[in-house]
Simulated scan of single mutants.
Amino acid sequence: MTDRLKALADAGVSIWLDDLSRERIETGNLADLVKEKSVVGVTTNPTIFASAIANGERYDDQVRKLVADGRPVEEVVFELTTEDVRNACDVFAPVAEQTAHDGRVSIEVEPDLANDTDGTLASARALWAAVDRPNALIKIPATKEGLPAITAAVAEGISVNVTLIFGEERYREVLDAYLSGLEQARAAGHDLSTIRSVASFFISRVDGEVDKRLDALGTDEALALRGQAAVANARVAYGAFQEVLASDRWRSLAEAGANPQRPLWASTGVKNPDYDDTLYVAELVVADTVNTMPEKTLEAFADHGEVRGDRVSGQADEARALLERLTAIGVDFPDVLVTLEHEGVDKFKKSWIELVETVEGQMEKVGK
């Protein structure tokens, strides 16, 4: 365990890895990251699974058996991914037992259902039952259609990772959806202490879209604001989280054993080489949050990252002023958020197609 990563964990930031493969599980690499790098959770997505399946032979035996059983590609994808998540949950089970909120492993509902409430809920139920581990999280997108599915899933006792959140308004709707689900779960007699949730707020993509628009404006004032929107946006979100924790509505649920829906900083790999490669970790150090990192970012922070204290609490008003300034100089920030959500859902669907095509290729290979 490096001193820098330990300092990050000591500051209240849970370090989750944004990657999973059968090789990581079976070689002990994942367990080593828990021991040596303070990693206490994992997030996945279809692109991660596609890469793992394409680049390793550890899936071949299972694929061969499923092909022999005549299973269609969608079922093969389901069996391969839920097997990995189930086994990763077992790796993290000791962490889940020892900590209040960590030791979690996420798996996404089918992306084609992002605008289908009933389909999303059905997919969430199927994944929750198949993984069959209390430390699993089912990823549901924060689309308008996803919000009622979040409430319904939580009401049934399903732990949820709400993904594809880009702005404050939608994030507040996600918080409300979670609280509504908890209230329904309480009314149904569920043990609220068994339900966990995180809200995945995307970071680097915000700077990517805003910077592109600032570059197009090209003024000195515009260029001076590059690389600031994403962190400001996250600080505004954390302010909303703190408001909820201070509310009577939340206190009533907490007294019944409910767990807070922690903000999770997602997409924290820095894409612009002009920026510090630990920017979206160092600037978002604050208690009761998760930072899910690709391994490259994890290693960068372990090597030269700095924990300079809480960079987020009490910054919401100043951060909101910066976002308003963007709009004032010609960057329509609300439009940025709409664009990012549409692009996020589209990428979500394309990554699923990539995964299905990858599995189809593996099915053809082992079936020869």
Rank of each mutant, 00 (worst) to 15 (best):
T2V: 01
R4K: 14
L5D: 13
K6T: 13
A9D: 15
I15L: 06
D19V: 01
I25H: 01
T27A: 03
L30S: 03
A31Q: 09
V34S: 11
E36W: 03
T44I: 01
T47E: 04
I53Q: 04
V63P: 12
R64L: 14
E74P: 02
P94G: 12
A100D: 12
D102A: 14
D102Q: 09
I107T: 14
T117V: 04
T117E: 15
T117S: 10
S123F: 10
P134F: 05
N135D: 09
A149W: 05
A152M: 00
A155L: 00
S159Y: 05
T163D: 09
Y171E: 05
Y171P: 01
L175Y: 08
L175P: 01
D176F: 02
D176Y: 03
A177C: 07
Y178M: 00
L179Q: 06
G181V: 01
E183G: 00
H190A: 00
G208C: 01
L214R: 09
L214V: 09
D215E: 10
G218H: 08
E243V: 15
V244Y: 08
L245W: 06
S252H: 07
S252T: 13
A256T: 00
R262I: 09
K271I: 06
Y275D: 15
Y275A: 07
E283S: 11
D288R: 12
T289I: 14
T297W: 02
L298T: 15
F301C: 11
A302I: 14
G305W: 13
G305S: 12
S313W: 00
A321L: 03
F333M: 05
D335Y: 11
V338T: 12
H342Y: 12
H342G: 13
D346A: 15
K350D: 10
S351D: 14
S351A: 15
W352V: 11
E360S: 11
K365M: 13
G367T: 09
G367K: 10
K368H: 12
